[in-house]
């Protein structure tokens, strides 16, 4: 029972990381239906910005995160302007290929500039505290990550549901032409979406960098893929879905490693994922709306 609870905590902290990345992923998807494969790499860029602002500028973790979020928000808007906007009226798969190209570009431009080796975050950036509650180990980093994921999700949900910008976003996602007729600037709305999505990725990047102490140019690939899986699992386009999907995937992987065989972790986790999709094809929180004729 103790081990089970411990594994649950392990799963939650891993899931929170997937959820953090998945939030931005699913938000961009929700508005423009683009699987932004470069999202994981924007996260990586954010992690590097955070790293350099801590090591070179000596800023603290909060300042580093703000720097990274601003830098990546700009990066996201620029990427959208250059690479995705010209394709807005083309097929979705064309935009998907551009996203793959953008992902490779970010990875290898970073390698070109900084080398492929990992960089180590100073331990002092976020000193570890460990708590033992009834035999269960939990660190301040775990709490930090889980709380951030939940808080960011709530903020995001608030922005989308309660603010004027959010209303514009939802309008664009439902019917772009109608939104234009209602006087909404589609370009501006999509730019804001990318800015927020990329800033979220940057926040996730800095947290992951601090959590695991290292950053490297290819760090975005696997978490990016897993976050995409999590987003789809929860019901892509839905903010709470990303959260749920992230936690489910994290706990799933943890339990496979903990009670099955870690050697088959990814195979079993992906297998269960397929099963869930087969039972509930629109993801855990997705509504089956049926197709319009």
């Amino acid at each position: 029972m103790l081990e089970f609870s411990q594994q649950l905590i392990n799963g939650l902290s891993l899931g929170a990381i997937y959820a953090l990345i998945a939030l931005g992923y699913t938000m961009v998807y929700g508005i423009i239906l683009l699987i932004n494969f470069a999202h994981g790499d924007i996260m990586m860029v954010g992690a590097f910005v955070g790293f350099y602002s801590i090591t070179l500028l000596g800023s603290n973790i909060v300042a580093a995160m703000i720097f990274a979020m601003i830098a990546c928000a700009i990066l996201g808007v620029v990427i959208e302007k250059i690479a995705y906007r010209p394709l807005r009226n083309s097929t979705r798969i064309a935009a998907l290929i551009t996203a793959i190209g953008m992902s490779l570009f970010l990875e290898y431009a970073t390698i070109f500039l900084l080398g492929p080796q990992q960089k180590v975050f100073p331990q002092s950036a976020f000193p570890l505290q460990q708590y033992e509650i009834m035999g269960l180990l939990i660190t301040n980093k775990d709490i930090f990550i889980i709380v951030s994921a939940v808080v960011l999700m709530i903020i995001l949900q608030f922005i989308i549901k309660q603010t004027k910008t959010g209303k514009a976003m939802r309008a664009v996602s439902v019917d772009r032409e109608a939104a234009v007729l209602m006087g909404i600037s589609v370009d501006k709305t999509i730019s804001i979406t990318f800015a927020i999505g990329s800033a979220l990725a940057a926040a996730a990047g800095v947290m992951i960098g601090v959590y695991y102490n290292t950053v490297n140019p290819l760090m975005g690939i696997i978490p990016g893929l897993k976050a995409f899986v999590a987003a789809v699992l929860g019901g892509i386009g839905l903010i709470p879905g990303a959260m749920v999907g992230g936690f489910v995937l994290g706990i799933l992987e943890t339990f496979v490693s903990g009670y099955g065989s870690s050697l088959y972790r990814d195979a079993v986790a992906f297998g269960v994922l397929i099963l869930i999709l087969l039972i509930k094809p629109t993801g855990l929180l997705g509504k089956n709306t049926g197709e319009k004729v």
Binding site: I97, G101, M102, F105, E107, I111
Partner: peptide, 15 residues
């Protein structure tokens, strides 16, 4: 610059 050129080719052709 191999992969950078490759990536740019993809993006430019698609645009």
């Amino acid at each position: 610059i191999r992969m950078i050129l490759y990536a740019l080719t993809l993006i430019i052709v698609m645009i």
